[in-house]
Design a protein around this nucleic acid. Structure first.
Lengths: 190, 190
DNA sequence: GATAACTTTTGATAAATGTCAAAAAAATTA
DNA sequence: TAATTTTTTTGACATTTATCAAAAGTTATC
């Protein structure tokens, strides 16, 4: 578990044994059940998780009572409601584990202490923030495509994995359409 | 000009006189004319700009030949195609100055040298990346609203400034709709 | 392996939004 | 101020997408 984390971190920035040891100290292991909410909308997110397998779904309930999926995170990855974490504002999203899984957890408070003492760990933070930002922009660009069919085709091109693994109903709202429409598009495209 | 930049930076992280002096060394002053493209789609972005007034528009041409506005940056702010800059990939967007303006410019290369030597400047980089990420998520959430009217109302609520200052045609594609539809919505809402 | 629960598909219809062309309004320039 | 250019609005109509209800298909559970 921790080895996977170390490998993952090393793909961003090389840490020394001592730095890894310090990082390991703030970690605690946790288990999540399939469909469990690891963060509920309305609460202020104080933690970051690291998952080695499976994936997570971000969703919220809109003004009409519909469940809207806004994001997916596939392991290996750090997962958090970064907006809530950084702003200390109530999370707009629920984060849901999509399978039974084990994760490593740490608090924002502990992480920020590491930032103060280990510039390389703060660099890791910068690089993660940058990659989250890029992923968010990609989703944004997907949604800016005018037709639902074009959005679906671009997703197929860019993230075929999403289409293979994630239930259609969740992909639909991620693309800003209903599941019925996505079902019809999928039929017409293939 | 530089004083405004220093004030802006200080709102993220306190730099010493020496650190500001070092930062100042990588800056060059530039002028842009209204409507000028400060970055063209297809080119790899190598620079970051800092503007003290006015605003910028990000746009691209989609597969149907329509101009799609994907972002706005209001001064004071750092402006760049961060995705292109960080990935060293061709920019998907054009960045356009929306008025005559003076800016301070610096290269990615120089910035990254500062990151290596000044942890506080790297922290600034992290904080900027985080705020870009949050802004991007907000636009994303706007687009996930199902009806065009709801998207417009949420924009009015969240960024009344946009609606006041930016021509309707640009706001329309930012909301994922045509200008005719936005014109009709605006009429029905007010 | 049968039952239940959940997910996807289908059909009919309504509603929202896009398209194109032209007019009106506003901003810019001579 | 007049002329020109740019932006916004309007109308008629086409197209896309949503909605609702039900059926079919799939997966999980006992």
């Amino acid at each position: 578990m921790k080895e996977t984390l170390h490998k993952y971190i090393n793909s961003f920035v090389q840490l020394t044994k001592e730095e890894f040891a310090t990082f390991d100290e703030i970690l605690t292991q946790k288990q999540f059940k399939k469909n469990e909410l690891i963060l509920e909308a309305g609460k202020i997110c104080q933690r970051v998780w690291f998952a080695t397998d499976g994936y997570f779904r971000f969703f919220h309930i809109d003004s009409r009572g519909n469940e809207i999926t806004s994001d997916f995170y596939f392991a290996p990855s750090f997962i958090s409601s970064f907006t809530s974490l950084l702003r200390e504002s109530p999370s707009l999203v629920n984060i849901q584990a999509m399978s039974d899984m084990e994760v490593l957890e740490f608090t924002k408070k502990d992480l920020f202490k590491l930032y103060d003492n280990y510039p390389k760990i703060e660099r890791l933070g910068r690089l993660i923030a940058e990659s989250v930002s890029i992923a968010s922009e990609e989703h944004l660009f997907l949604l800016l495509n005018q037709t639902a069919e074009m959005r679906y085709k671009k997703l197929l091109e860019k993230n075929p994995k999403y289409v293979k693994i994630i239930p259609l109903q969740y992909i639909a709202s991620y693309l800003g359409i209903t599941q019925e429409t996505l079902s019809r598009i999928r039929k017409s495209v293939q």
